[in-house]
Every structure is written in C-alpha cells, then in structure tokens.
Design a binder for these strands. Structure first.
Length: 271
DNA sequence: AAAAGCCCCTGGATGC
DNA sequence: TGCATCCAGGGGCTTT
C-alpha cells in the first residue's frame, strides 16, 4: 500500500499530536514481519519526542531509543482517543497519554521494530542502504544520473530498489516514468542525462502532488485520522491497462517486471 | 557485485 | 453457492 506519499501523509496526520506523550502501554496482536526486539513493557514510561520519516519507514523517537514502523503492503495507522476493542487486523497498539497509536495490517508485511539508537545494528540493517530523500534537497542530477549509469537493470526496477532514491513504489514508479516519457523497460545505464533530469523532476513532482492530495487510496489506505487520499484519481497509467492514455489515446499496457505489474503508454513513453 | 527469484500473509475480484 | 485462480501499494534474503 504505502509509498512515500502515504507514509508522509500518515506522519503529518499525527506527529504533532503524539509529540510529548508518555507511553502507557503496549499491546501486540499476531506476529508482524519482524519481532519488536525489546520487552514491550520496558517501553512504558518513555516519552515520545517526535515522528520522522526515512523512505517508507516512520521513526518514532523516544527519550530513549526509537521505534521503526513500516506499513508493508496493507498497513495503516490510526491515532486518537478511541480505545475501542482491537479488530482482527489490529496487530500493534502503542498507548500514550495523548492517545492510542494503532497499526492495522491485514497481510502483516509491516513491522514495528525497536532500535536503541539510530546507528544501532538493527536500525542500520533496515535503513543503512537507503538512497536519498527525493523531497528534501540532496536529490541532485549528478548523483542520480551517475547512479543510474552503474545499473544494468530496467530503470523501473532500479527506482523500486530504493538505493538511489527512496519512497518510489509501484504506483509512483509507473507514474513518474510516464511523466518523464521513459519506457519502464529501458536499462538504467541507457538513460541519458537529459532524460535522467526529466525523471528526477517527474519523481519530485508526482510525489509532492500525491502528498498534497492525501496519498492514493486504492482499496483501504487512510491517514491516522481515517481520511482517505485522492491521488489515484489523477493516475495516468497505474491500474489503467486497456484504457486510453489521457495524453494521446493509445491503450495503456500492463507488463510484469520482477513479479510486479508495470503500466505504461506505448506511444508517450519511448524505449 | 549486481540481478533475478522467492517468500512472508490475507482478502477481494473474477471465472467456472 | 462453492471453489479455484489471480492479483494486490514492500522488501529482505537467497540463489544465480
């Protein structure tokens, strides 16, 4: 589910409200992707300093240590004073003096992991290989183009890997490549510098517009207030196989790349 | 070293 | 109605 826009929209919807709260309890449902890595009761009494984002991870900073939250494919967070009985897919609750932070994740590809420091072995294993943040400066053309130049895989695969630039998942990779006019199957090292610049700008553009629209709600994404996103209504290619391109009328195609679907316009996107 | 495949898991849509 | 099949927003790990 959640790519950078959805994770950022989630963060924005509760970060200010949870900051300063004290942890009053932890409840865990079915196991998530990874174990928490600490005795849950040891978190009680700690203070929440704030919430940051790194790629698709949310970092909940505590006065001692931090919690890394990942929403996987189907996760979403809620934060508020509603402490009603957990539903079947509510698998992690962090109760605080300011409200309850609850992870709902049907497929359980998500995780909540404790790290003692940002440079701890645990944190580095999950965050250490991540590329630059596309919406926070530092995403410059030279590094991006050089990075692409070293890869022989398809450009869409390189975007998804998140080692050059983070946060671009299956929806926004297809959308950014459409906006840049680049066929997803083009080898990364064959992307010229001018096309790399188009792609860089398209990534920034599509991700920031998606954040402004509250993310994409394909089936069940909501922010921590329960509000859905509307960017999916503006998708040019994602999930539009067989439908006419909004720009040229050609029929949008769907192909498989690395066990994921890719969508593109055969006319607007050049090999 | 990099690329390609393999899984983890549940549920909704579709087809017979 | 039931059952089988396919598909889904991710990503670490193992195998080539």
């Amino acid at each position: 589910m959640p790519e950078l826009p959805e994770v950022e929209v989630t963060r924005l919807s509760f970060a200010d409200r949870i900051a300063g709260a004290r942890v009053t309890g932890v409840r865990m449902g079915k196991p998530l992707r990874w174990p928490l890595g600490v005795n849950p009761s040891s978190l009680v009494g700690r203070q929440v300093l704030g919430v940051r984002r790194r790629g698709k991870y949310l970092l909940v900073d505590l006065d001692k240590g931090l919690l890394l939250w990942h929403l996987g494919m189907s996760g979403s967070l809620r934060f508020g004073l509603d402490r009603s009985t957990p539903q079947v897919h509510d698998h992690f609750d962090l109760d605080t003096t300011h409200g309850l932070l609850r992870l709902n994740d049907p497929r359980r590809f998500g995780a909540v992991v404790y790290a003692s420091h940002e440079n701890s072995l645990t944190a580095v294993k999950l965050l250490g290989h991540l590329g630059v943040e596309p919406l926070q400066g530092g995403f410059d053309l030279n590094r991006f183009h050089q990075g692409l130049h070293k890869r022989h895989a398809a450009v869409k695969q390189v975007l998804l890997a998140g080692e050059l630039v983070v946060g671009v998942g299956n929806i926004y990779a297809s959308e950014a490549l459409f906006l840049a006019g680049i066929r997803p199957t083009v080898r990364a090292d064959r992307v010229s510098r001018p096309r790399a610049e188009k792609l860089r700008l398209a990534i920034i553009d599509v991700l920031s517009r998606a954040v402004a629209k509250g993310g994409s709600t394909l089936r069940d994404f909501t922010n921590a207030d329960g509000q859905q996103g509307y960017f999916q209504l503006e998708a040019h290619v994602y999930d539009r196989a067989g439908q006419p391109c909004r720009a040229c009328g050609s029929l949008i195609r769907r192909i498989q790349q690395g066990q994921r679907s890719t969508y593109y316009c055969p006319t607007c996107q050049k090999p």
